[in-house]
Design a protein around this nucleic acid. Structure first.
Lengths: 200, 200
DNA sequence: TGTTACATGTAACGTTTGTTACATGAAAAG
DNA sequence: CTTTTCATGTAACAAACGTTACATGTAACA
């Protein structure tokens, strides 16, 4: 049985997904939920406490959703980037990720106000996918690039809403990596890292 | 001779670069410039007018800086992505781009408040670089990918400040494209587009 | 010198902000 | 049946918000 507070958090998450973080205000928020600012303060102590609990709940749920994605990945040879992309742009996950990207940017420009909510940051998905790279290719530069491709395309999706084109770009990147792999002689193991991505 | 207003705009740009957009308030802003909120309203009509003029001035200057970059590109064979990256992370341009990325994200989540400032958007740099691709490779997917690599790496730079690693990732991407080019047979011309990025 | 335009400061207005004081209803526990 | 606990509403608070009214100084022009 859900406590009153848990129900409230669910409703609050829904509101935040639709309205963003940067101009959040207690009274309009409360009114949208059919209650009063007084009640929110009662349950969460302060606006800051409210944001902490709501964002925390959201990140937890996203992490769970991500975990179950990883586990049910029957074929480990399937392209992890594509798998992850499809998960990220799925209707039920997309708005959450969108909000976390907003949080990330706000924290960059205003760490005093938003930095605290990023402590247990859920946005370092990008690094996680890196672990799915073949070990020989898992260099800092390649992992950074992989994460950036994901971030950049997701932002493009946020701005334009063009699922088709951004997904094509994901596939283009995968193709690029494959072709480059063909072009490179198969390394006997090790030493690959230094010759490929070490300091010039 | 600069008018009082132009001087003000210069100072305002400086302030915005350091403080971001999302929590801008007239009184602290005025105090930082050693004047009063009254004066700002007098010169710009409203807070909204102030933001319009200041952001417009900033975008204009960035465009000029970018144009002169393009013109003095003596060797057209030099990697355009790397050229552009170096320009973007240069000390004098970096804060401006950072602010425009914040604007972009705020506009996504709150178009009513920030969308207006993006009309003549200066952030579509990314598409511009696409024009530097060999014509055969200038497919929508590849252009989107190229822009996303830039956006993603720039955001990573914003978050971590790690110029070295993000620059290595830029070079990694260039290397990847080169290697893929080797692996692919040279196309006689045309038809490349359909076979590479058309609908699956 | 008088007048007019521009620039600026002080103080206030009305609104909205997060938060709190006080009161009340409902439900559970004794 | 009373008492205690939880949940909630109304109203107020002080602060900060964008904006405006009013006054004043300075500089140019007549």
């Amino acid at each position: 049985m859900k406590s009153r507070k848990e129900i409230l958090i669910d409703e609050l998450v829904g509101y935040l997904l639709g309205h963003g973080l940067s101009d959040l205000s207690l009274r309009p928020l409360a009114e949208a939920l059919g209650t009063s600012a007084r009640l929110l303060i009662y349950h969460f102590g302060s606006k800051e406490g409210l944001l902490t609990e709501v964002l925390d709940s959201m990140q937890t749920r996203l992490r769970q959703s991500f975990s179950s994605l990883i586990e049910q990945r029957a074929s480990p040879s399937a392209r992890p980037l594509k798998l992850f992309w499809d998960w990220a742009i799925a209707r039920e996950n997309y708005p959450h990720l969108k909000l976390l990207y907003e949080l990330q940017i706000l924290a960059v420009q205003n760490p005093a106000a938003y930095g605290q909510y990023l402590q247990r940051n859920a946005s370092n998905w990008s690094v996680l996918i890196g672990t799915a790279l073949p070990e020989a290719e898992r260099t800092p530069a390649m992992v950074t690039l992989l994460g950036a491709v994901f971030d950049g395309l997701f932002l493009e999706l946020m701005s334009t809403g063009d699922r088709k084109r951004t997904t094509q770009a994901v596939l283009q990147f995968i193709r690029l990596v494959d072709e480059a792999r063909e072009a490179r002689p198969v390394m006997p193991r090790k030493t690959t890292k230094a010759s490929n991505t070490g300091p010039r």
